[in-house]
Design a protein around this nucleic acid. Structure first.
Lengths: 218, 218, 218, 218
DNA sequence: TATGAATGAGGTTTCATTCAT
DNA sequence: GATGAATGAAACCTCATTCAT
């Protein structure tokens, strides 16, 4: 089990405050599995209960509503997916090491998120799907993105633009192209074509190379 | 009304075979609107009927099941979105005009799909959402992609690789990066951040430039 | 069928606006019966459906919620029970005929409400029971009482107080004692002890006599 | 704390047999409060537990079923409300003191029950409501009424009828009119219009006067 | 063609009660 | 005694679909 597997993390959480009962664990596992497979709206609580080997009422002892169950799964996922940007060292390292470039950052970022995605495919699917319809999730995402991800990303991009390493596009455009390419890769790799015989190491390097050349100063 | 607006096209279709009654038109419009807004599974046929100003039974006179209604909306969309690749001139032009490059192709492609997306945002949303769960749609998409899009795309990419205009990545990788970047742009532009003050012309050019530099031979 | 039977009235209503389907009629009949017998909260919609010989869903086609069903039964009852006080002649006759006294009024009132109660026992029970908990019913009752019943009643009582026929109690007290005695009679007669061998004519006369002597000027 | 407050009495009961634990006390208080407010059937045991600050299971340690809890509250209330009629001196005094009349009895009765009602409004509400549906409560009430209240009341009324103080109505009618008027007063005073600016002393006297004149020999 | 009443299976949720701790 | 997780039956309600008109 890797440090990135947030289902495992939730399930094994040992904080005194939110100990999970064994049944609750099974409910979460079943819910993740089925929401990813059939979508939130098309999964019935009775199916979840059956899969979890639990009485249907038990679900509602722990989660007041079906939506609560979804959020208890999806919201932490959003937070965790954006987590690297919270980390102090994410930005600091860039500034401290004069020899490291945007590619170094990308490499760390992609590898990191690649491992994360690999271990959380069902959760990723759930979030991508439900983000479209669940207002509360959109809000959560927007908050995290504008408050934590965007500002730090902007600092970094501006830094490399000043160093002349990156083309003089608007910072937002650079960020969009970077994220789009990375997320596009992860979605293709793990969701659209998980069965394609990928050579992950090479594909990651090509993706980095693509972004770097795509952005580099003419 | 543009030539790209496929809802309008469906609604006004004058072929003798699939003449639409006014009620049927309203049903389709209402369904598109609500599926895009709330998702297929969370939209009830009675809501659609109410929105369309039609009796509940009327929907089932025209569409045997709710899923039929979805498919009658989504499947043509998939076909239409991939349509440019069907067009003979899409590839031919590339080979005939020795001076036109990959960027010309991209420019035509993006502009074309940009207009298309702009006029079909709700349909785009529906397809993106439901593709995840509707098997029949996945099959339809895969068929079209592997039979029509992929082969022609491959021809083109190989052509430019041979000409030395494109880096020597595997053809699939080039296609993936190209499509990912274009679709990522369209999704960001029209679905994730439709209210951002976009400078469309410039953003399109930057996107093309990003792809071109990203792929160009070192 | 008497002119007082408001269930029949509802069921046979021939206004174009609120025609009842046969099933709807059966639902209302079953609901009245069971709410009176077991109370609103202890009657399940599935029981009502079974009694009405109808699918459970049919109830909710006609009444959005179980509470809607209750109100559609109880609110007209409140209106109808207070109806005599709306009638113009209720007050006018008192003033026009100098020889008629408070006892004449009481006699007409009691006979009238007696017949009404006799034909609407289950509805009466429902209203008495649910008035305690259903806010909307309390409001409806209060509106009717303060706007229609109370002012006319006050006029009448003041009239007879001036004529010296009624003791000089506060008008509210006179009204309270009158209504309390009448309602107390009806409730005892039809709800608490419906099986007691009542001599209705005599008991009515005694009740009138009791009120008259109770209120007459010393 | 008055001698009439039967909740307090139950809660503080110090008989060895039915000592109440602090938790049990809280359960009873919460149950009384909520049954009065929302009705028995619409109050859930979990709500009671929450209000009482007790675990759900704790309720069932002390009361085998929810209905047991209701009866443990309501049945003593019925007994206590009828208690004055049990008292030996209720009847005896009437016969011993040749100068005291029916009005003296009424006065004592009303004052006594007035104070009782005032201190037990929620319980009164519960009993009035649930009497309609709870068979066991009806039986209890009927037993007490026919075995204790009615015979003594009859003795008293017959006594005053013989003395010529009361009109020659059937004894049952006299009792009905008396009780109806008293209960009607208490219900109006404490349940229907508790917020009206009552002048209790005067209203009681008027009620007595109303009954006395209503019943007195023509 | 269009309607909308009717259906019944199945959805989410509540609830009184039990029981291991 | 007290807890609260667990239960499963049953509550209210929704829904896609059918069918007589």
């Amino acid at each position: 089990m890797s440090e990135n597997d947030i289902i495992q993390e939730m399930l094994l959480n040992e904080d005194d405050d939110d100990q999970l009962t064994p049944k609750q664990r099974k409910i979460l596992q079943a819910a993740v599995e089925m929401f990813a497979e059939k979508g939130y709206a098309s999964t019935s609580t009775s199916e979840i209960a059956k899969h979890a080997g639990v009485a249907e009422g038990t679900i509602f002892r722990h989660y007041k509503t079906k939506k609560d169950l979804l959020y208890s799964i999806a919201v932490p996922m959003i937070t965790k997916f954006a987590a690297p940007f919270f980390a102090q060292h994410f930005v600091r390292q860039v500034f401290n090491d004069q020899y490291s470039g945007y590619d170094e950052l990308l490499r760390r970022l992609i590898h990191n998120r690649f491992e994360f995605a690999k271990e959380n495919i069902p959760l990723l699917k759930i979030v991508l799907q439900e983000m479209a319809f669940q207002h509360e999730m959109q809000v959560k995402y927007k908050d995290i993105f504008t408050e934590n991800v965007l500002p730090r990303f902007r600092e970094v991009v501006d830094h490399f633009k000043e160093k002349g390493q990156i083309e003089d596009y608007p910072t937002e455009t650079v960020i969009r192209l970077t994220i789009t390419t990375i997320v596009g890769f992860l979605v293709t790799r793990f969701i659209i074509m998980p069965d394609y015989p990928w050579d992950d190491e090479q594909e990651i390097e090509r993706t980095i190379s693509f972004i770097m050349h795509g952005l580099e100063k003419a």
